[in-house]
């Protein structure tokens, strides 16, 4: 069963004259990773929102872990997202007044499934942060606002991984990092996703990262009609 399957997804923002995104077909199995690249503004973030169930999509267009996102109500989509999807963004990933560890275990407060799968969220959070090369004690002390951007991005990855979701969506998570940090970051992300058998959809305009991934797709090739 593919963790992510997209078939004929069209979405148009309210007031737009053309469809913002048109995706013909895309599939991702458990433990697989996919690098999706395309220029800024081509609709990558909209695709992430559609998969995460934040915007309304047609029935049958998006399936995550075998569930048709378009058939769920908005409340059910929120619960489904909490249970099955981890998200990492370019910036502003963390709640600034919570500590690093509190940020990591945040999904466990909204999802019973993730809490159950994590077992002891705090211990898992510490282990994940340690794996990512961070000092768990420091992150239990410092609030997210006091962390460096590199630290924040790794905390965000730990948060996406906790409770082993079925799918991780990463939207330009490396653009604030320098070259060495990018490589280290991607290695850990990839390794942990493989270890948890989590599917990873990684979206970026930076084609230099392509080599780290099993597969690579140009966003415009998914696009049947063109957004520009």
């Amino acid at each position: 069963m593919p963790m992510l399957r997209i078939e004929g997804l069209d979405h148009r923002w309210t007031g737009a004259r053309q469809d913002t995104i048109r995706v013909g077909a895309l599939a991702l199995g458990a433990g697989e990773n996919l690098f999706l690249h395309g220029p800024s503004g081509c609709g990558k973030s909209t695709l992430i929102s559609a998969i995460a169930g934040v915007i309304d999509v047609a029935e049958g267009a998006v399936c995550v872990a075998g569930r048709d996102i378009g058939s769920l109500g908005s409340g059910a989509r929120d619960r489904f997202r909490a249970d099955h999807i981890g998200l990492v963004f370019q910036m502003f990933n963390l709640v600034p007044w919570l500590t690093g560890i509190e940020n990591v275990i945040l999904p466990c407060t909204f999802s019973r499934r993730r809490r159950r799968r994590a077992g002891n969220p705090e211990a898992v959070a510490r282990r994940l942060l340690g794996d990512l090369g961070l000092d768990p004690d420091e992150l239990g002390r410092k609030t997210a606002g006091d962390l460096s951007v590199g630290q924040q991005q790794r905390v965000a990855v730990a948060r996406a991984l906790i409770g082993t979701p079925d799918l991780i969506l990463a939207d330009e998570p490396t653009s604030a990092l320098d070259a060495d940090a990018k490589t280290a970051f991607l290695d850990v992300l990839m390794r942990d996703c493989k270890a948890a058998n989590t599917a990873l959809l990684f979206v970026s305009h930076d084609r230099g990262l392509e080599g780290h991934f099993d597969r690579s797709v140009d966003f415009r090739d998914l696009d049947r009609g063109g957004t520009r």
Partner: peptide
Amino acid sequence: ILRSVGAS
């Protein structure tokens, strides 16, 4: 951010 971690 809260929305992204599952808050409605």
